[in-house]
Simulated assay, not measured.
Amino acid sequence: MRKLVYYVASTLDGFVAGPDGADPTGPDGFWPIPEDYLRYLAEHYPETLPGPARQALGITVEGTRFDTVVEGRRSYEIGLRAGLTDAYPHLRHLVVSRTLGKSPDPAVEIVADDPLAAIRELKRQDGKDVWLIGGGDLAGALYPEIDELVLKTAPMTLRTGIPLFGRHDHGFDPRTWQLTDHHVLGSGALFLTYTRSTPAGPASA
């Protein structure tokens, strides 16, 4: 069965974006992107780089982890503002939104109804794992179905911003995770992979 993997950049204090939710890695962003960080992404997670970045770096390999990406409307609109109607043309691309309406791109699928049901159906299908790119609020809504966390932890703190699982209160639901892989870069970034220890689905009593 396919896994839903929340693969996301996080600060040491658990934020995935600043208070305004803008792209922290964009031209005006604050996220550090040293050379060894970008090289590690290109070598180990090439499918998670946007189409223009793959083209600029000469990356043509499909990648081994993901063939599908899921994101929320706010995350998707970051690409739209940059003129990208499909930032990941090499992946099946789904956007969860009740307000977006018609898709701006024929290759991008809109999930307007229950996102948990949509993810459960995706996980039953054949294929590689499903990449949850964010944002935090969508990750909070999909929390019961997240099987693995891959945290690209930057050596920085924000004090405030968008938390890993968003600002909305989805309820108290403690879960345990097992560290299954880790890699430390010379620049200080950590790649931490955690697999869910407690079963996915509704919280246990």
Rank of each mutant, 00 (worst) to 15 (best):
G21N: 14
A154L: 14
P89C: 03
P115Q: 04
L100V: 03
F172K: 00
D113H: 04
P46T: 02
T157E: 10
G161S: 10
Y45G: 07
L80T: 06
A154K: 05
T176R: 15
P144G: 08
T68N: 03
P24V: 05
A189L: 12
T68D: 04
A205K: 03
S204R: 12
T25Y: 14
D147W: 09
A112Y: 07
F165V: 04
V96F: 00
P52S: 05
T25L: 14
A200S: 08
V70Y: 07
A56H: 09
G134H: 08
G171F: 08
L138Q: 13
D113L: 00
I110R: 01
W131I: 01
R73F: 09
M156I: 15
L49K: 09
T153G: 01
V130Q: 00
L192N: 11
W177Q: 06
W131K: 01
L4M: 06
L94D: 00
G63S: 05
Q178K: 14
H183N: 08
T99A: 06
A154C: 09
G51E: 14
E62M: 04
D137S: 12
P89R: 05
E35N: 05
G127L: 04
I133C: 11
L149F: 15
G51H: 13
F172R: 02
D173T: 06
E71F: 13
V61Q: 12
L190R: 06
E62T: 08
V69I: 14
F191S: 07
E71W: 01
K3C: 09
L149W: 15
P24H: 12
M1Y: 07
L41Q: 09
A17Q: 14
V96E: 02
T176H: 13
E145S: 11
T176Y: 12
K3W: 09
I133K: 02
P19A: 15
V16N: 06
V130G: 01
P199N: 05
G101M: 04
G79E: 07
G101F: 06
E71M: 15
P32E: 12
W177N: 03
V5E: 08
L149P: 06
K123G: 02
G161K: 10
P199R: 07
R65H: 09
A200V: 11
T198E: 15
L4F: 05
V5F: 09
Y40E: 13
R74H: 12
I33W: 05
D20C: 11
R98W: 00
S204W: 06
Y6P: 11
L132F: 01
L116P: 00
S97W: 03
G166R: 04
R175V: 13
A154T: 11
T157Y: 10
L41G: 02
A112H: 07
G21C: 15
